[in-house]
């Protein structure tokens, strides 16, 4: 039974090594997790950064809208509603992104419905505005 002694020692050694390996793996996982958190944080600050630039665009566009719309003649206020209605359906861009979701499911269907609704508006809004504006053409 003399051979068992070193064998046990080897086994113990191996167990020890395994434990160390596990610890290292855990540490590595922790580091990876931290890293991914950093990445997420970075992305988050990216989103925050976009929020500020988006807000600037938003506020400036409100001013552009303010000055442009005040110049619209009151006679054409109905066509103005028609056009703004059509262009607010530019929300279809979001719907198109939604349809492109890789795993086909709830989000894709939501996107598909949104594409239909927005398209009704885009076509309907522009066509009804065109009908209105044609009536305002100068009659000879």
């Amino acid at each position: 039974m003399s051979g068992t002694q070193p064998n046990e020692a080897v086994a113990e050694n191996a167990a020890d090594l395994a434990r160390q390996a596990k610890q290292i793996a855990e540490e590595a996982a922790q580091i990876a997790m931290d890293a991914s958190n950093y990445v997420a944080d970075a992305a988050n600050t990216h989103a925050d950064y976009f929020f500020m630039s988006g807000l600037s665009v938003f506020v400036l566009a409100c001013f552009v809208g303010y000055y442009v719309v005040w110049r619209v003649t009151p006679a054409l206020h109905s066509p103005l509603m028609g056009i703004t209605n059509a262009i607010s359906s530019v929300i279809i861009l979001g719907a198109i992104v939604a349809v492109s979701v890789p795993d086909f499911g709830f989000s894709t269907w939501m996107g598909f419905c949104a594409v239909i609704l927005a398209s009704i508006n885009i076509f309907g809004g522009f066509i009804v505005t065109r009908r209105m504006l044609q009536m305002f053409k100068k009659k000879s």
């Binding site: 809208g65 719309v69 929300i91």
Partner: peptide, 29 residues
């Protein structure tokens, strides 16, 4: 305004601009 809100989510300037134009137009009316 709803379109502009979605524009912020999608980080899409066109949606934000259009939303702001339509929003202010309706507000003026």
């Amino acid at each position: 305004w709803a379109a502009a809100g979605i524009g912020f989510t999608l980080q899409n300037d066109l949606l934000i601009i259009t939303g702001a134009l339509v929003g202010s137009s309706g507000a003026i009316l």
